[in-house]
Design a protein around this nucleic acid. Sequence first.
DNA 1: CGATTCTTTGAAAACAGTCAATCTGTGTGG
DNA 2: CCACACAGATTGACTGTTTTCAAAGAATCG
Lengths: 189, 189
Amino acid sequence: MHNQLFNHIKKFIDLNADEEQTLLSLLKSSSLKKKSFLLEEGQVCRANYFLVKGCLRLYFIDIKGAEQTTQFAIENWWITDLTSFQFQKPSEFYIQAVEASEVIAIEHHHYDEIFNRIPKLERYFRLVLQKSYQATQMRIRFLYSLTAEERYHHFNNSFPEFVRRVPQYMLASYLGFTPEFLSKIRAKK
Amino acid sequence: MHNQLFNHIKKFIDLNADEEQTLLSLLKSSSLKKKSFLLEEGQVCRANYFLVKGCLRLYFIDIKGAEQTTQFAIENWWITDLTSFQFQKPSEFYIQAVEASEVIAIEHHHYDEIFNRIPKLERYFRLVLQKSYQATQMRIRFLYSLTAEERYHHFNNSFPEFVRRVPQYMLASYLGFTPEFLSKIRAKK
DNA sequence: CGATTCTTTGAAAACAGTCAATCTGTGTGG
DNA sequence: CCACACAGATTGACTGTTTTCAAAGAATCG
């Protein structure tokens, strides 16, 4: 289970056996049932989560009461409400398991320690953040240049297996429109 | 001029005199006239830019030929097309000076060196990226929960001086709608 | 002052949302 | 294993927001 995280880390930096041991002592893994929550609105986000298996989503409830999914995480991605996590203040988001999932957590009270004891991880997380940032940049690019229908087709072509795994109403909000509209797009063809 | 960057860095990490000297030798500063370009579509993005003074924007041209501004940078922010910069491949974006500006550049051929010679900077850029990532998360949240008109009012209340500095057609695309519509929103009240 | 760039305005059209009713599929408990 | 309940998906009519296009008006810069 932890090997998957170590392998991911090793794509970016080298870790020796000592460092692996240190890291191991600061991690905490857990299994999640489908639909269970790692974070709910109003709670403080306690950890940064690495997804070993399954699928999680980050969403919030908008003024009209609708769920807006802002991020999905699958295998080998990190997910957290960075703002709530960093400042340990109440979150405006939910993190929920879309499927039964397994995660490895770095809790907040270990977060500084992890970087102090294994400075190499600064680079790893810099690169992970860089990749996440690039992903959101791409996302904004699509949001600004494609219509709702085009976004759906593009996403569907790019990640067909993912579209199958996720309920449509979550996908709709992730792509920035309503479930009804997604249904109408699909009916067209 | 470089002091401003050093001061920014010192908000996150400590740099000693030696490290400052090393860093200095790897930086390159330049002045930009209003409307000049640091990057144009098709070019490879050569550097990561720290804005000392002025205002830059990152934008692309969509299928219909309209400019879509995806990011602004002001004093003390970094800006680049991370994807083009990292992989040294042609960019789909432009980076343009909205006002006469002064920037400090770290060029790509120095980028690895800078982290190898001053490992502390891994942390600095991790934290800078974290902040940028938080900013885009907030942005997506607003895009998904507010109407175009609400986004304008919210932005206008949050950054009134910024709204004054930037042409409306850039602001409109940044907020995700047309210049004409922005004009109509303003006419309402 | 002239030229260009930016903003405004209005009418028509497109795109996407809302709401409510109905349909479908699936998981659970009896 | 079946039946039922409930979550999720579909459909249609209507509404509303935002875009488009074209033309005219203001502002800015050299």
